[in-house]
Design a binder for these strands. Structure first.
Lengths: 254, 254
DNA sequence: AAGTGGTCTAGACCACTAG
DNA sequence: TAGTGGTCTAGACCACTTC
């Protein structure tokens, strides 16, 4: 007695692809649009099943994929929540510099410059915006155990961060990506990085207190939100004399 | 009328953790032990369900996790197969050097030295073997578009690669990890990497044809198989003047 | 006790591959 | 046509959280 599938709202789901993908797309849309904000719960699985008119198992499959993507987290007995980048999460998900022994540590961040400008060609290409669009450029020095180890140069499209001032930026009480999320509703989901070895020179060398010609690791990172939309360009220079950039490929253990 | 769960072979599954984890562990064990070799099909889902005495959905959940881990691949209508590292798979899963434009290319590999030795302290620690255990050290130069770009120094525990000779190593017609798999039944599932910037010197600089003092990217990689057992230490030096190391964090798009 | 996610079952039907 | 994986349903029961 397999009942014919009835939709609570047939218009919600159009055929052609699996139902769970449709559901997933709707949930993604809701999160990206800020309908459920970071840290908030989405409706219960039973509620979603009723709303979309599908079985709970189908909802679970859609939610599973968003959990795997990092957009949602489940908490048994409580609900399913939009991933919040507060505290440690982002730090240990996207910050990859470790000590020689492999130990992770929290960096202390100091902002040394904050200015408005127009995107140059490289920035425009990386951020998928037009040349000469307004951007904010920020330079931070990150110290580990009191020693400056990283110089970060951020470029942010002003259009995505309206009203961002140095005061707001430096007054944040948490990670930068948490600021993106809590104030601007931007959820960083992925990063794309290019690494190269360079030589210390000029201001960066001075900030890191290394002689010119010292080797530095350059990391060029683009942070992406839903639909692979770029939201931040970050060029880091890392003194790897006493630290390393840590990286792992392939999931799970077993 | 929920029938009491009956096991075809109750001894196969002990309680205490979810059934799908038990099933997964059994499958993992079978693959790691070489019961199903790379490229071969495991039993059908229906067959596994009958064998373990569980529902097909439970089998699917176990297989799902192994697919996510990269140990198995599904092919609709054909079966589920142990991942084979032949051809492109490993290449683009674990080889991360790209051109300035982001284009990937196949490297040409040339072996410049092959010798037997005893593990030094660093190698022993990385490979979780005793000091002075027998190892094989291999140095390769990888060229992209005819230009030498990478020097790879591999250290392999001899115990895992019995009878490995330079002739066998250089006569392979595929990637190195494919050789591991096809000849020694070793499936590389994960890698753990530490990156730093260094300066060219000595033989490595000469092989890469760069002047002493040029910046090089150093990648120290440990390749792991099931149960996070280390099987290879690889220290790479990359000339990033015209290439970059590419890296992506966070899964999926949407 | 009520509500949430987590596991597991049993079966229907679809989509793809092979002989 | 038979066998495989892929989607989906409907419901039971468990584990955890909150009131």
């Amino acid at each position: 007695m397999t009942a014919p599938p009835t939709r609570a709202d047939p218009a919600l789901l159009r055929p052609g692809r699996p139902l769970y993908e449709e559901v997933r797309a709707h949930l993604t849309e809701g999160i990206a649009a800020g309908r459920w904000k970071a840290g908030e719960a989405i409706p219960s699985e039973a509620g979603l099943a009723a709303h979309f008119g599908v079985a709970i198992g189908t909802i679970r499959k859609a939610v599973d994929s968003l959990v795997a993507q990092g957009a949602l987290v489940r908490r048994q007995g409580k609900g399913t929540f939009v991933t919040a980048h507060d505290g440690r999460r982002l730090m240990f998900h996207f910050f990859h510099v470790v000590g020689e022994d492999g130990a992770k540590a929290y960096p202390e961040v100091r902002t040394v410059s904050f200015e408005r400008a127009r995107a140059d060609a490289a920035e425009a290409a990386a951020l998928a915006i037009a040349r000469d669009e307004r951007v904010v450029r920020i330079r931070n020095v990150l110290a580990l155990a009191g020693e400056p180890v990283i110089v970060d140069d951020l470029t942010l499209p002003s259009a995505l961060f309206p009203g961002l001032t140095e005061r707001i930026f430096t007054a944040r009480d948490n990670t930068i990506y948490h600021l993106f999320q809590s104030r601007y509703g931007i959820n960083v989901l992925r990063t794309d990085e290019r690494l190269r070895a360079t030589l210390a020179a000029g201001a960066i060398g001075a900030l890191l207190r290394v002689p010119a010609g010292s080797p530095l690791l350059e990391v060029r990172r683009v942070a992406l939100t839903f639909r692979d939309r770029p939201v931040e360009l970050r060029v880091s220079h890392v003194n790897t004399a006493r630290h390393a950039y840590h990286n792992t490929f392939g999931k799970g253990d077993a």
